[in-house]
Design a binder for these strands. Structure first.
Lengths: 213, 213
DNA sequence: CGATCACTTGATAATCCTCAATCCTTGTGG
DNA sequence: CCACAAGGATTGAGGATTATCAAGTGATCG
């Protein structure tokens, strides 16, 4: 079901099944809020979720967009601190919950899972660092190109990237109007296609070049 | 010696002593380079170290400034990937090296160390996320105020923050000239004191307010 | 004590934000 | 099924912030 559990054999899988509890979430439903204490982790089976923090002006900054198969919120659970970020569904979702105790028990008894968790943390740290450097050095236009390529992977199973302009702006770290203008530029340059909310990439290589990768 | 090993008892400490090898580094000496493969981790006993990545234009972005007691480079070692960042001393340093094999062995046999490593990763991820949101939403002036407070903690054992204007700019993600102008503003507002390279904070609270914390 | 490097200042231009007005889409209730 | 309301998307104007370039000045180190 999930990359982190993908090595599981039958016995382990049934152990996992015993402790997880799945439920449906509607679009725009909150999963957890920054400041609250983690009681476990969430496995995203279906749908997309945004993970974001709020600047002191109340402006949202989207730190991550999670897709099917990802585990959400285990960073805070491991450190024992309250959540620093909030999570909310972007569409209807199917999400499993695993209680902290159960997850830590599994972690204790399973070397491979432990390695996966550490690798996962390492990988996230890596991506976050990359994004930080991007944010520090690149223009909004470059960041948009980069983000479109990134989002294209997230939405690869769908027909197109499906995000509100505001969410896109909050992901890239700019104003909604700026995003709209730049998307228009990209469209006129023949790089992307726009159908209201839905964006598709026409010229991947050129976007890569603009992103400066 | 180090926060990550601070729980060590006598026996563990001697095990640690057996595998570590210490050496001196001169100012501006490279510790490791992005792209190379990690062969172990580095414990910073004395001095400061900058960890940075390079944008495709070759411009440096300082991701972290490490001080005495920190461990450097274990992210890449755990994930097994090549370094994504480079590390270089900012002043004369005393640094211990622990080979990958030895570190992983210790990790295997020591629950507490494992928890510390995970906590450490979690904490770094947290800080990196915070910085990312700052970078996305705050002006250079706000980021400078934030960074001065951050650096004040890093340099708390010294008389003052001691960084080149360029390093400061590369940490904050802006141009050197911008930093110089803003530092001048802060000085005129009575918030900081400047003695060529050395910066000290005079009005901590006002800087906090400007940083928007 | 000269040369190199860091720092500073000014002028100019590009980028991006904010505000305000308008248009379009979508969902809802009649 | 239609009309209307509400929220999202778009456009334009204007201004603030920040980058870039060029030309100094000052500090440091062999």
């Amino acid at each position: 079901m999930n990359s982190m559990f993908s090595h599981y054999n039958c016995e382990e899988a049934s152990e996992l099944n015993a402790v997880k509890s799945c439920s449906f979430y509607k679009k725009k439903q909150s999963i957890f809020l920054a400041g609250s204490s983690p009681r476990g982790v969430y496995c995203l089976n279906e749908g997309k979720v945004k993970v974001f923090s709020l600047g002191e002006n109340g402006k949202e900054h989207i730190v991550h967009i999670a897709k099917e198969g990802e585990i959400i919120g285990f960073r805070a659970m491991l450190s024992g601190d309250p959540y620093e970020v909030s999570a909310e569904t972007l569409e209807d979702c199917n999400i499993c919950f695993i209680a902290k105790e159960d997850f830590l028990n599994m972690l204790d008894g399973n070397v491979k899972l432990r390695q996966n968790v550490m690798q996962s943390l390492s990988k996230e740290l890596n991506i976050r660092t990359k994004l930080l450097t991007n944010m520090a050095q690149k223009s909004v236009r470059e960041r948009l190109a980069f983000s479109l390529i990134f989002l294209d992977k997230v939405y690869q199973d769908e027909e197109a990237i499906n995000l509100s302009r505001e969410d896109l702006a909050n992901f890239i770290g700019t104003a909604t109007e700026t995003i709209i203008r730049l998307l228009k530029d990209f469209k006129e340059e023949g790089l992307i296609e726009i159908h209201t909310r839905k964006l598709s990439i026409l010229n991947h290589n050129e976007l890569l070049r603009i992103a400066g990768e």
